[in-house]
Computed example of a mutant assay.
Amino acid sequence: MSAVGLGLERARYETIVYFRQPDTIFFTFLFPVVMLGIFSVAFQGMGNVGAAPDGTGGITQAAYYLPAMIAAGILLSGVQNLAVDIAGEKSDGTLKRLGGTPLPVISYFIGKMGQVLATSVLQIGLLLVVARLAFGVALPASADLWLRFTWIYLLSIVTSAVLGIALSAIPRTGRSATAVIIPIVLILQFISGVYIPFGVLPTWLQNVASVFPLKWIAEGMRSVFLPQSFESREPSGSWQLGGIAIVLSVWLVAGLLASRITFRWIRKDA
């Protein structure tokens, strides 16, 4: 088989293994769906977001939090999942054993990226179904918005996956990977407009969050799923689509360089 063929077969294997791990399924796959349900139910008594003074108009809490949970799911699928997974494979000797096989390095990474893409698409599909059927959220009807969603999603998930590979070098052992990676991911979610509206954060914290990719992923998803009237609620007064593309591209390149420097495959062709 070619390197690409081996990578696709590896992606199938990685996806099967992913869904055989209950803790992984809950904390990376189902977690955004669970959080969407919690926020939608817990805050429904507060009324619609963006409603007029007389209580009319606006959108439901479920509709407001849907783009945030999609952004969180992308981060969990790419950064947290791969960082913890690869760190564990380094620690338990899996990478060393793979290094003694004919499997090309590129096939290994195609497998990882394929698994992240497959599980992320399924996760977002589940989020959209739950939002529509359980909470009556109206999904975008414009082809332009779905085209925008596609490029933001693809750039976001590839960037997150690459950063996950790079971060896998930080934990010293597989056992410590969860303790090292999850706090990083959790802090980013709180300061990037996932759990707390970005506009209510202090300006200095907004500036810090703007350095990292999750803030831009969340803003991009808001530009797709929230009404146009919500654009003025952004601190910048616009969706900043150009900025989203630039910042995520910079992080993608930085992640690729970091992965190339830090990843160790015990074999000469690496």
Rank of each mutant, 00 (worst) to 15 (best):
L205K: 00
V137D: 11
V224T: 09
G78E: 07
L252T: 10
F31Q: 04
F230C: 11
A166F: 06
I184G: 01
A166R: 05
T24R: 13
L122W: 00
D23M: 10
P171C: 02
L82M: 13
L98D: 09
D54P: 08
N81C: 00
Q228T: 13
V4L: 15
E219G: 15
G50D: 06
V34T: 05
P67N: 05
P67R: 02
Q189A: 14
L75G: 13
S120Q: 10
I124W: 09
A245C: 08
P22F: 01
D54E: 10
A68T: 05
P67Q: 07
M69W: 01
R10A: 14
S210V: 03
F26I: 15
G114Y: 09
P202T: 05
I266Q: 13
A138Q: 14
F29M: 05
P104T: 03
S77D: 06
V208S: 04
W151G: 13
S120K: 00
A141V: 14
S249V: 04
I59T: 05
F109C: 06
A72P: 00
F263L: 15
A11G: 07
F225K: 07
S192I: 01
L145I: 01
F263T: 13
E219K: 08
S238E: 11
S160I: 00
R175N: 14
W216P: 12
Y13C: 02
I196N: 08
L128V: 04
F263D: 07
L241P: 01
